[in-house]
Amino acid sequence: TGEEYIAVGDFTAQQVGDLTFKKGEILLVIEKKPDGWWIAKDAKGNEGLVPRTYLEPYS
C-alpha cells in the first residue's frame, strides 16, 4: 500500500530507474526517501523514482 499523489507537472526520466509521468497523473508513493526522490508506481504498474517537488497529495 501507499499514498496517492497527483503530478503537478510533466517529468521525463533523466536516468535508468526514474519514472516518466504527465501532469494530472495519479501516482502511488511507496517509499519517501530523504533525498527528495520518492519511489512511486503509476496506473500501469510501472515503478520508479520521482521528484517529490512534482507531486501533491491527492484526496
Rank of each mutant, 00 (worst) to 15 (best):
residue 35 D to P: 02
residue 55 L to F: 05
residue 5 Y to G: 01
residue 2 G to P: 11
residue 17 G to H: 07
residue 27 L to A: 01
residue 7 A to P: 01
residue 10 D to F: 04
residue 24 G to M: 03
residue 29 V to H: 00
residue 33 K to H: 11
residue 37 W to I: 10
residue 31 E to M: 11
residue 47 E to V: 14
residue 23 K to D: 04
residue 52 R to C: 06
residue 2 G to I: 14
residue 13 A to Y: 03
residue 13 A to S: 12
residue 19 L to G: 01
residue 58 Y to R: 15
residue 51 P to L: 15
residue 59 S to T: 15
residue 34 P to V: 11
residue 51 P to H: 12
residue 31 E to N: 10
residue 37 W to Q: 10
residue 20 T to I: 04
residue 18 D to R: 10
residue 18 D to T: 15
residue 4 E to K: 15
residue 1 T to S: 14
residue 17 G to C: 05
residue 29 V to Y: 01
residue 35 D to V: 04
residue 55 L to K: 01
residue 30 I to W: 05
residue 2 G to Q: 12
residue 32 K to M: 08
residue 57 P to C: 05
residue 52 R to N: 11
residue 40 A to G: 05
residue 10 D to H: 07
residue 19 L to E: 00
residue 50 V to P: 01
residue 52 R to M: 12
residue 22 K to A: 14
residue 49 L to K: 15
residue 18 D to F: 15
residue 4 E to Y: 13
residue 41 K to F: 10
residue 55 L to Q: 00
residue 44 K to R: 10
residue 40 A to L: 03
residue 16 V to Q: 08
residue 1 T to I: 12
residue 58 Y to S: 08
residue 48 G to M: 02
residue 21 F to E: 00
residue 18 D to S: 14
residue 20 T to P: 15
residue 22 K to L: 07
residue 7 A to F: 02
residue 7 A to K: 00
residue 26 I to G: 02
residue 59 S to G: 11
residue 13 A to D: 03
residue 11 F to E: 01
residue 51 P to T: 04
residue 39 I to V: 12
residue 20 T to C: 05
residue 15 Q to K: 15
residue 22 K to N: 09
residue 45 G to N: 09
residue 20 T to H: 07
residue 43 A to V: 12
residue 16 V to C: 06
residue 21 F to N: 01
residue 41 K to S: 08
residue 52 R to S: 15
residue 6 I to F: 06
residue 5 Y to W: 14
residue 6 I to M: 13
residue 46 N to R: 08
residue 16 V to I: 09
residue 26 I to C: 05
residue 2 G to T: 14
residue 24 G to F: 06
residue 4 E to V: 08
residue 12 T to P: 08
residue 32 K to D: 03
residue 34 P to S: 12
residue 27 L to E: 00
residue 57 P to A: 12
residue 43 A to R: 13
residue 54 Y to Q: 09
residue 33 K to G: 11
residue 38 W to S: 01
residue 57 P to H: 08
residue 44 K to T: 14
residue 43 A to H: 13
residue 11 F to P: 01
residue 51 P to A: 08
residue 47 E to T: 13
residue 32 K to C: 03
residue 59 S to I: 15
residue 43 A to Y: 07
residue 31 E to P: 01
residue 41 K to I: 07
residue 47 E to F: 14
residue 34 P to D: 14
residue 30 I to V: 14
residue 42 D to K: 05
residue 36 G to E: 07
residue 51 P to C: 06
residue 54 Y to L: 11
residue 24 G to C: 05
residue 43 A to M: 09
residue 29 V to P: 01
residue 47 E to D: 06
residue 18 D to A: 08
residue 37 W to N: 07
residue 38 W to H: 02
residue 31 E to S: 14
residue 45 G to F: 04
residue 55 L to M: 06
residue 43 A to I: 13
residue 44 K to D: 15
residue 56 E to R: 13
residue 2 G to N: 13
residue 54 Y to G: 05
residue 46 N to H: 10
residue 32 K to L: 05
residue 23 K to G: 04
residue 14 Q to E: 10
residue 54 Y to R: 08
residue 9 G to Q: 15
residue 50 V to L: 03
residue 42 D to M: 02
residue 34 P to H: 13
residue 28 L to G: 03
residue 4 E to P: 09
residue 57 P to E: 09
residue 28 L to A: 07
residue 8 V to H: 06
residue 19 L to K: 02
residue 11 F to N: 03
residue 50 V to G: 01
residue 43 A to T: 14
residue 27 L to Y: 02
residue 49 L to N: 12
residue 56 E to W: 08
residue 27 L to F: 07
residue 38 W to V: 03
residue 12 T to R: 08
residue 4 E to M: 14
residue 50 V to I: 06
residue 59 S to N: 12
residue 45 G to D: 06
residue 21 F to T: 03
residue 14 Q to G: 11
residue 35 D to L: 06
residue 5 Y to S: 01
residue 23 K to N: 06
residue 25 E to P: 00
residue 12 T to L: 09
residue 25 E to C: 04
residue 1 T to E: 13
residue 53 T to G: 14
residue 10 D to L: 02
residue 25 E to R: 02
residue 47 E to H: 14
residue 32 K to R: 09
residue 44 K to C: 05
residue 46 N to A: 07
residue 58 Y to C: 05
residue 11 F to I: 04
residue 53 T to M: 12
residue 23 K to F: 08
residue 32 K to A: 05
residue 26 I to Q: 03
residue 27 L to R: 00
residue 14 Q to F: 07
residue 58 Y to Q: 07
residue 8 V to I: 14
residue 16 V to R: 13
residue 37 W to E: 05
residue 54 Y to W: 09
residue 5 Y to T: 01
residue 29 V to I: 15
residue 46 N to V: 12
residue 40 A to C: 05
residue 58 Y to K: 13
residue 11 F to V: 07
residue 15 Q to I: 08
residue 27 L to C: 02
residue 10 D to Q: 05
residue 15 Q to H: 13
residue 23 K to L: 08
residue 41 K to H: 09
residue 36 G to F: 06
residue 37 W to G: 05
residue 3 E to C: 04
residue 15 Q to F: 09
residue 45 G to L: 05
residue 44 K to I: 11
residue 44 K to A: 14
residue 8 V to K: 08
residue 35 D to F: 07
residue 20 T to A: 13
residue 27 L to Q: 00
residue 22 K to T: 11
residue 16 V to H: 10
residue 25 E to D: 11
residue 24 G to V: 01
residue 39 I to G: 03
residue 16 V to S: 09
residue 41 K to N: 06
residue 9 G to Y: 15
residue 45 G to S: 05
residue 3 E to T: 13
residue 31 E to I: 11
residue 38 W to P: 00
